[in-house]
Design a protein around this nucleic acid. Structure first.
Lengths: 215, 215
DNA sequence: TAGATTGTTAATCGATTAACAATC
DNA sequence: TAGATTGTTAATCGATTAACAATC
């Protein structure tokens, strides 16, 4: 029952397993070997067996893996069956996009509130949510106990808000602000630094061009 | 002049260097040692020296690094001085968010067009751009020669659009659709799979909770 | 010159791949 | 049983860290 110290690299791959297993399920494929998964995912068969074995023997020699069982197991490992409730802080375009995206719901997350400080936005409707005043956040958290806060606020405001939310007991932050948050380490922070991602793309584009010239 | 095979891990760290060097510049700090950078960035001093040396000797023994010079060098390595032009395909909330975000401009990118197929959206204004009809994309590309396409379209449409754009000569795709694109390998693709990111956060939250119980 | 700090080599660590015995 | 495919150990590879001579 105690599966300690799963390598970070393995965790990063789990969502990808989950997505492709979902696709297999939808095609009514209920059995798969590490070799076939390898073709599909682009990981080596060896790596796949190694990865899955971090969590226990999910397969069967001579047979392979049961797709549905594997899908459920990985979902459970990822915590997708916990029914985590999320709030969005910042109702700009990005906040809107997150509120409207259906894919999260499909993976077991629910967005139960969206907040802003702009009085022109407060009260407007986004899907089935109404934008609330951020100054009401404390009582909301006390009542509804959200698990995850999605931060789509300007980077200057991000750290103060993050500190406040974690003081109120929120243990997971999905941070879209282009800033690093300073928080106690019993808080999970996942940064989505879009500028970093774009610069990475830019590097590779530039690198390809120079290699093309050299050739 | 030929600095081959820079490790992927180093590239991933470059945007972070760039961001913190920018902050140092804004504080008028123009000299920094790997030790100080280490405190700031959370990389080890050793790693920082190793990283920077992939591109040549930017520092000076007994002195450290010149912040402005380093900032410019890293910017150049990332291709930020190339003045890359981008188009956004998909003018939903996410497309809007990207179009309105000022941070890309600051890093040398310009968004020169935004496209959609929804006739209700076509013609509306987003910042200083007007949403164009995606069916006009070919002539636009021929005329304006954008370098990067940002894909914020439904996952079912993503691959076809990606293939079309790369056929038209676009060599870099920033893909926000939750799908993997099948493209020739002279095309740079950077995926932003937000669901993966959220599941990663979910894993860590879940993992923390179980560890808390065990303790 | 003496002190500081890089550039660079060597040692360590972790992750990936290969191989194969176990077993369904 | 024979064939397939896992679970797992060992080998390889790459990335990080430590150490220190070079040198500003």
């Amino acid at each position: 029952m105690k599966e300690n110290a799963v390598p970070e690299a393995v965790i990063k791959r789990l969502p990808r397993y989950y997505r492709y297993l979902d696709e297999l399920l939808q095609k009514n494929i209920n059995r798969i070997s590490s070799g076939k998964l390898s073709e599909l995912l682009g990981f080596t068969a060896s790596q796949i067996r190694q990865d899955l074995n971090c969590f226990g023997g999910f397969g069967q020699q001579g047979y392979g893996y049961n797709v549905e069982m594997l899908y459920k197991k990985i979902g459970a490992i990822l915590g997708l069956d916990c029914g985590y409730k999320a709030i969005i802080i910042g109702a700009g375009y990005l906040g809107h996009a997150l509120a409207c995206y259906g894919g999260f719901k499909k993976r077991g997350f629910s967005v139960i509130g969206i907040f802003d400080i702009n009085s022109e936005i407060i009260g407007t409707e986004i899907g089935d949510l109404t934008v609330s005043d951020y100054s009401d956040i404390d009582s909301f958290i006390d009542e509804k106990r959200p698990d995850i806060a999605m931060l789509t606020v300007p980077k200057t405001a991000a750290n103060d808000i993050a500190v406040h939310l974690t003081d109120k007991g929120i243990k997971a932050l999905w941070n879209f602000a282009y800033a690093d948050l300073s928080l106690p380490d019993d808080v999970a922070v996942e940064n989505v630094h879009l500028s970093d991602s774009l610069m990475n793309l830019s590097y590779r584009l530039t690198d390809m061009k120079t290699k093309g010239e050299t050739k």
